[in-house]
Amino acid sequence: MADIRSFKELRVWQNAMEVTMIIFELTKSFPPEERFSLSDQIRRSSRSVAANLAEAWRKRRYPAAFVSKLSDAESEAAETQTWCEIALRCGYLTRSQAESLDSKLEEILGQLVKMASQREKWTIQSTHSINQRNNQRKP
């Protein structure tokens, strides 16, 4: 975990924020009739990736809750990919823009999966659970 003190220091959170801001700027050019539908949905799901990461970080004392919030972030990233595909097919994003966003979201998804699969590196271990684990290892 390398002495990270805040979720804002996580590369995955920084990547999620970058995608959020790119989407915010790109959706400004979407047609007005999409204001309360596609624009709103893609912005909400992209923002939820970073928000769920922040929540996961605060739940590191509870490994199951930590992984659950990472899973929520993963779901929101996949949802954002779907909205990007819809925006591409509607002609609101160029192929280049959509592919760039998809690539960035795939990177984020990989980072989330890695964090969840290596949760012991990220969660806060209580003295009680460490002692239990050590006692189970003794013959």
Rank of each mutant, 00 (worst) to 15 (best):
K59D: 12
I86W: 13
E34K: 08
L70C: 03
E74K: 09
A73N: 00
Y92C: 04
E99F: 02
E107P: 00
P31C: 05
R58W: 12
F66V: 06
I23D: 08
Q14S: 13
L109P: 03
I23E: 09
Q81M: 15
V49A: 01
E85V: 06
R95A: 10
R47E: 08
E107G: 10
R47S: 10
L53F: 04
N15I: 00
I22S: 01
A51C: 13
C90R: 15
R58A: 15
E106C: 12
L26G: 02
M17L: 05
P32I: 08
Q81L: 10
A51D: 10
S96A: 13
E85W: 15
S100A: 12
A16V: 00
I108D: 04
L26D: 05
E106K: 15
L53Y: 04
R47K: 13
A56E: 00
K69R: 15
E25M: 10
S29V: 08
Y62P: 07
P31S: 05
A54Q: 04
L109D: 06
C90W: 14
S45Y: 00
R11A: 11
A87M: 06
I86Y: 13
P31L: 06
W13F: 07
P32S: 13
E76G: 03
E34I: 09
T80K: 03
E79L: 09
W57L: 09
T82K: 06
T80D: 05
E76H: 01
F36K: 10
V12K: 02
L101A: 04
L105V: 01
E55K: 09
R58M: 11
T82L: 11
E74Y: 14
A50W: 01
V67F: 02
A64N: 08
S37F: 07
S48G: 13
K69N: 06
G91Y: 08
V19E: 07
R43V: 03
K69T: 02
T80W: 03
K59Y: 13
S71W: 02
D102G: 14
K104V: 01
W83T: 01
E99H: 08
N15K: 05
Q81V: 05
L109F: 09
N52M: 06
L26Y: 12
A50K: 00
E85Y: 14
R43Y: 03
F24W: 15
K69D: 01
V67D: 01
L53S: 05
R44K: 11
L109N: 13
S39L: 08
Y92A: 02
A64W: 05
L53C: 12
E79V: 06
S100Q: 14
E55Q: 13
L53I: 09
W13E: 01
F24N: 11
A64I: 08
